[in-house]
Design a protein around this nucleic acid. Sequence first.
DNA 1: TGCCGTTGACGAACGCGTTCGTTACGATCG
DNA 2: CGATCGTAACGAACGCGTTCGTCAACGGCA
Lengths: 229, 229
Amino acid sequence: MSRRDRPAKPPLSRDGLVSVALRIMREEGLEKVTMRRLAAELDTGPASLYVYVRNTAELHGALLDELLAGLDAVAKPDVLDGVTAGNARGRAVDLMCAYAGVLHHEPSLARSVLVLRPSGPHYLRLVDVLLALLRAAGVPAGQAAWGVDILLQHATASAAEHGVRPGDSGADDAAEDQMVAVRAAAPDAYPNIARVRDHLFAGTGEQRARWSFGVLLEGIATTALPSDE
Amino acid sequence: MSRRDRPAKPPLSRDGLVSVALRIMREEGLEKVTMRRLAAELDTGPASLYVYVRNTAELHGALLDELLAGLDAVAKPDVLDGVTAGNARGRAVDLMCAYAGVLHHEPSLARSVLVLRPSGPHYLRLVDVLLALLRAAGVPAGQAAWGVDILLQHATASAAEHGVRPGDSGADDAAEDQMVAVRAAAPDAYPNIARVRDHLFAGTGEQRARWSFGVLLEGIATTALPSDE
DNA sequence: TGCCGTTGACGAACGCGTTCGTTACGATCG
DNA sequence: CGATCGTAACGAACGCGTTCGTCAACGGCA
């Protein structure tokens, strides 16, 4: 009834949902993007949202794709530019780092996406460009196809793990627990951990990410698919 | 008051919690292992559990470690047995597959662990043995230390993604969405996806897992750490 | 023996995601 | 023009994780 006087409330839509969610995320973080909050912001009840979004996970997926729109600048013209067999792999690493960078700003989104299989248009674009780069680098199609999965999965995971905001408690606890557990690991019970202890925590997130992408690309390029026998 | 007549209720303990949780998980799946259910099973209120467990994530971590105890048979004597530079990498793949197999039976646990940094004794044992195998395979310490992270992370992720129980809805939707999105991807908008479409969905989970581990090990073994300059 | 501080246990509450059944509206068809 | 039907919208409810303030039991100390 009170809604009747409201100045022509736009009649809800998936895009509207996502854009409001995006705003809340930017202003207050993903944690505040709840179904109930979103509904309140749109002046309706939580149940109404489920017409446009299957569940919270799908909403998060939409948010990711929106964020990925910003990558088009990096991804689109790149393919045509001077890509050679020599520099293709480096370009792939750069693209992966750009993707990781996006998630890095919103770690909790990365944690959500980790459990998800994104299917938005910008995500597909990313996959497509990545495939092009691998092809340019001389990677056989089969290995490239399987490899892209690993690459993106790993990028998401590394963003989820590394990026923990100071105020954001919860997911951070486990990381600290693991660190103290490793540090406390008795050298006679876990000799190999003790031996490389310093290496385990060495390096910045950036360094480790770039190295990891190199590792993956090297392995993907040189490891043949299992033969169907 | 009514609790007074109960036949000597054992006074709660972390181990008790975990073992009851484990039983519920085996009988009815991880989804049913909720704080409230666990409390009811122990004839108390939910708040009482938080004395022994920081949150649900930590409980899941404890469950994983309990499950990992079954791996000791594979992990313990292996190191001493005839491990040579030649077969070490193969042993590592086998161990990773064993770890993935454990998670494979309880995919939702894998999804939990994905966001976690486990720190239980059996997990540390797994890390330790893995480090030993990499060492035996001639992998430099630094690369091995960074590599173990990638290996375990990937094993968990692949278990989480592949293993979706038929009845277990929710996480499965996204995977299906992605599949139809990729299948529907217009060949002119996403030429590279179209080109390798058949490869993208090829292979069994087992095949892809083994190949992935090979990829990772190859990359880890041959990619040098960034020099500190 | 009597007291007190510590700590395990717990009842109640908050906000959350999601589902169900109902309502009301707009397009479609007779 | 009026009846019908699909469906957006919604109110209410359930079970969930987690926190807070309180209570009671117990060990150590005077």
